[in-house]
Nucleic acid binder design. Structure first.
Lengths: 137, 137
DNA sequence: TACCGATAATCAGTGTGCTGTCAATCGGGG
DNA sequence: CCCCGATTGACAGCACACTGATTATCGGTA
């Protein structure tokens, strides 16, 4: 018999689900989802990138990135600008509003993370982070 | 600036995604997904339950459970039987075929898990399991 | 018995991940 | 300069997760 309740795969899925839910709850008033936040977080580091390079950086499928950008565009947080030297590609840029949200949303993310990780000691959090990095590849 | 690449939430999402993908790949030839497998794994422990009690046990949303069961039913692995004492509810039971798959799929799951966790030592795996349990709640 | 709140499951709609297909465009070789 | 393979992004379709509304039924009470 398979001890699903104690399998790391199952536990991982449930913990992920809980974290996602917590985050989603807090982002709701902004009309944002955790995935959209994560894309924004990458754009705050560097924007003016093509959808493909964003897809590589974030490890999100190219078709999914398209949909994410659609929604962020509707919210007025990013815009698609033409690329002069390649008419196939867009440059994905933050709007003024998209930049403004950085401080506020980062604070929110920090608070959610703290709540999410509250069952763990600082030491355990550090170990978890390095373990996850090993598993990410 | 938010260091998304090192945030536990982001890493968790990516690791989950990798595990899900690995599992999905292996289950593909059965026409099953990891979520469907996890529901089966619960049913191997105990079946003849209502959708609601399965939803509680597995911590999967009630509406999602309905869809999962739809697909498992189409594959001929489970069936919905009427509940004599409550005409609203179904009893979700494994079919012969659904029971037969247990040994095979559990072996597959064990192999996938081993591959997924191969970057970690046995010690690290144990620590990860107990950390995830703390975070699950 | 007739009604009422609670409960089981479904349906509709949104967000996301993935596969596969397609059109437009790019870049390099003949 | 034209053709071909590669690349960028769009779109359709399937699998979920979750919210909220709806339908059918249950159980208890007036």
């Amino acid at each position: 018999m398979y001890d699903i309740e104690n399998s790391i795969g199952f536990l991982l899925a449930k913990v992920y689900q809980r974290g996602f839910g917590l985050f989603k709850e807090q982002l709701d008033s902004y009309g944002l989802t955790p995935k959209q936040f994560s894309l924004l977080a990458f754009l705050w580091i560097e924007d003016d990138l093509s959808q493909t390079s964003l897809s590589h950086k974030t490890q999100v499928d190219r078709t999914t990135i398209g949909g994410l950008i659609d929604r962020l565009e509707k919210l007025g947080l990013v815009k698609r600008l033409p690329t002069p030297e390649d008419r196939r590609a867009y440059r994905i840029c933050l709007t003024e509003r998209g930049r403004e949200l950085e401080k506020e949303l980062c604070g929110l993310a920090a608070r959610v993370t703290e709540k999410f990780l509250s069952p763990l000691t600082a030491e355990e959090q550090t170990v978890l982070r390095s373990t996850l990095k090993k598993l990410r590849q």
